[in-house]
Structure formats: structure tokens, C-alpha cells
Simulated assay, not measured.
Amino acid sequence: MTDTLISLISILIGIIGANSAGYALKKYSFGLIGNTIAGVFGSIFLIKSFGRLGFNPFSIMKNETFHSWLFIINCIVSFLGGALAIIFIKKLKHKMNNSNKA
């Protein structure tokens, strides 16, 4: 596996996380396309923010070896990033709509 492939897998898992969270939590859903976009940006944001702890794609493939535990942590963080993104965006949208009415 290369660093690019790991990054693409992370983004795909973020999309799955956002769409599954949108399916489970109907009040936070933006539909298929909205959840997909939120999943992409949420997984990228969380991996870039917390990836410096050692589970970014470069650390997973350090010295041309594959570290499976780091990859599993990366997948979990990507999934959570996608799921948390739709919740955060929905709360932000709600807060912005309330501030416009006041």
C-alpha cells in the first residue's frame, strides 16, 4: 500500500461514517450528497488534526513497512470524523439560522 491509497481509503471510510450516521440520526442528515461531502471534509480534517499523533498515512508506511494497528486507528478516526462532521455542520447551520432571525 502507498500513502496515497491509505489516504483514499481514509476518505472513503469517512464517507461511510457520515452516511451511516446520517442514516442512524435522521435529524442530522443532509441527504446522500450532503453527507458524502461532509464525510470527505470531516475525515480529512480529523486526520490532519490528530494525525500528528502517529497514525497519518506517512507513519503507517514508515520505512516501507505496513503498520496495521496504526491503519486501524486511522480508519476509526476517519469514521468518527465523517460522523462528527454532519453533527457539527447541522448544529452550525441551526445556530446560523437562529442568528439571522434575531
Score class of each variant (00 low, 15 high):
Tyr23Lys: 12
Phe30Arg: 12
Asn19Thr: 15
Leu8Met: 09
Ser10Phe: 01
Leu8Arg: 00
Ala85His: 07
Val40Pro: 07
Leu32Asn: 10
Phe66His: 11
Asn100Asp: 11
Phe55Ile: 13
Thr36Tyr: 03
Leu84Gly: 13
Ile16Trp: 13
His67Cys: 04
Met1Val: 08
Ala38Cys: 10
Ile86Ala: 03
Ser10Val: 02
Ile89Tyr: 04
Phe66Tyr: 10
Tyr23Thr: 15
Ala18Trp: 04
Gly54Cys: 05
Asp3Val: 11
Phe58Trp: 12
His94Gly: 05
Lys90Thr: 15
Val77Phe: 02
Leu46Phe: 14
Lys26Phe: 09
Phe58Cys: 00
Gly22Ser: 07
Ile72Ala: 13
Ala85Asp: 04
Lys91Gly: 03
Leu53Lys: 06
Lys101Met: 05
Ala24Leu: 13
Phe50Leu: 12
Gly14His: 06
Ile6Glu: 00
Ser10Gln: 06
Pro57Arg: 09
Asn74Arg: 02
Phe50Glu: 15
Ile87Trp: 13
Leu12Gly: 06
Asn98Pro: 08
Glu64Ser: 13
Phe88His: 05
Gly14Phe: 06
Tyr28Cys: 06
Lys93Ile: 10
Lys101Thr: 12
Thr65Ser: 14
Met96Ala: 10
Phe41Tyr: 13
Ser10Asp: 13
Gly22Leu: 05
Asn74Tyr: 02
Gly34His: 15
Ile87Asp: 07
Gly39Pro: 08
Lys27Asn: 12
Met61Cys: 06
Ala38Glu: 09
Phe88Lys: 11
Phe66Leu: 10
Phe30Lys: 11
Ile73Cys: 06
Val40Ile: 08
Ile73Arg: 08
Phe41Ile: 12
Pro57Asp: 00
Ser49Glu: 11
Lys27Val: 05
Leu53Arg: 05
Ala18Phe: 07
Ser29Leu: 03
Asp3Arg: 06
Met1Ala: 10
Phe71Lys: 04
Ser49His: 06
Gly39His: 06
Lys26Tyr: 10
Ile13Glu: 03
Ser59Asn: 13
Ile9Asn: 02
Ala21Ile: 02
Ile16Cys: 04
Phe41Cys: 09
Leu32Arg: 14
Ile6Thr: 06
Ile16Arg: 01
Asn35Arg: 08
Leu84Glu: 12
Lys48Val: 14
Phe41Ala: 04
Ala24Lys: 15
Asn74Cys: 03
Gly42Val: 01
Gly51Ile: 15
Arg52Met: 05
Ser99Cys: 01
Val77Arg: 04
Lys48Asp: 08
Gly81Leu: 06
Asp3Gln: 10
Leu32Met: 09
Ala18Asp: 01
Phe79Ala: 15
Ile87Glu: 09
Ala18Glu: 00
Gly14Pro: 01
Ile9Glu: 00
Ile37Lys: 07
Met1Lys: 07
Lys90Glu: 07
Gly39Arg: 06
Trp69Val: 01
Lys93Phe: 08
Ile6Lys: 01
Tyr28Gln: 03
Ala85Cys: 05
His67Pro: 12
Ile72Arg: 03
Gly34Asn: 14
Leu46Thr: 07
Phe58Lys: 10
Leu92Tyr: 14
Ser49Asn: 12
Ala83Pro: 15
Ser7Tyr: 02
Phe66Arg: 09
Phe50Pro: 13
Pro57Met: 05
Ile6Met: 00
Thr2Trp: 01
Lys101Gly: 10
Asn56Trp: 14
Arg52Ala: 09
Ile9His: 00
Ile11Asp: 01
Gly39Ser: 07
Asn19Phe: 04
His94Ser: 07
